[in-house]
């Protein structure tokens, strides 16, 4: 795989061509679960320090796409991938690349908040760092505070760091998971429907957080909620039956989609 994607290899359906640096590029990405071909030649360019939303009907491959980005897809038995995912210039699927190091750089937050149930708030956030061998208490303290701050959670839990992570509210648990992901200082944060289990207040906090995070991270969010995609993202990709149908600036895509399929999906005429 070439270090830089050549223009002729990628056919992004961009309404406006980005000028800012790209953080992740997928090139002819294909994914399977056994014989089920779930992603078909997806070539997508994700801009650094922006929020990109992936939308599409159930089963279109949204979650699989982001799970391919940090090599989580291959954890499923009989799952298979072809094509390339470049993080900056490096193919994360190149020979010899350790998937764990990829996942350290590309963190993930899931649909259902999943703090480690037996761990305290503090330990939940520090877990990744400890796993990486960090033992210095002062450094751990700083990292935990920084991550909880970034996740808009510090003020709410600073006097209860010893409390169990599972005792927090659903919205707080999700922000704890975001803090946990941020603690290992990833470059990209993938979010798979992070608000689908949350009430509107908790959702609003996460959305504000996402908008805030893009100053330091590249964020890719999968969402079923089109209004959420419209609110938080700078770019939106529409997937249908495993294919990238349209990709462009969120405002353009929601106001004036170029593809008939996108128009029909957005206006609720199918899906």
């Amino acid at each position: 795989m070439d270090k830089e994607l050549k223009a002729e290899n990628t056919k992004p359906i961009l309404i406006s061509r980005p000028v800012e640096p790209l953080k992740i590029q997928t090139d002819k990405l294909n994914a399977w679960f056994g014989n089920n071909h779930v992603l078909k030649d997806v070539s997508l360019r994700i801009k650094e320090n922006h929020v990109t939303a992936i939308i599409g009907p159930s089963g279109c491959g949204k979650s699989t796409l982001i799970r391919c980005m940090n090599r989580m897809h291959e954890l499923v038995p009989q799952a298979k991938v072809s094509g390339a995912v470049l993080l900056d210039d490096a193919n994360v699927y190149a020979k010899g690349v350790d998937p764990v190091s990829v996942r350290r750089k590309i963190g993930m937050v899931f649909q259902k908040p999943n703090p480690f149930p037996t761990m305290s708030v503090y330990d939940n956030v520090a877990a990744g760092l400890k796993l990486n061998g960090e033992r210095d208490h002062a450094r751990l303290d700083r990292a935990v505070k920084r991550s909880l701050d970034l996740a808009f959670l510090w003020e709410e839990v600073k006097h209860e760091l010893d409390k169990s992570g599972s005792s927090l509210s659903g919205g707080q648990q999700q922000r704890l998971c975001i803090a946990r992901a941020l603690a290992v200082e990833p470059e990209v944060l993938l979010m798979d429907e992070p608000c689908s289990a949350l009430d509107p207040i908790a959702t609003a906090k996460i959305e504000e957080l996402i908008t805030n995070l893009k100053d330091q991270y590249t964020v890719v969010i999968v969402t079923h909620n089109m209004q959420q995609a419209a609110r938080v993202s700078d770019y939106t990709a529409f997937l249908y039956l495993g294919q990238l149908i349209e990709y462009g600036e969120t405002t353009n895509l929601f106001e004036n989609p170029t593809e008939e399929l996108t128009e029909r999906y957005l206006t609720g005429k199918f899906g």
Binding site: M226, Q227, A230, F254, E255, N256, P257, T262, E263, L266, T267
Partner: peptide, 8 residues
């Protein structure tokens, strides 16, 4: 929350 041609 209309979008696309509905919004236009």
């Amino acid at each position: 929350q209309p979008v696309a041609s509905d919004l236009r």
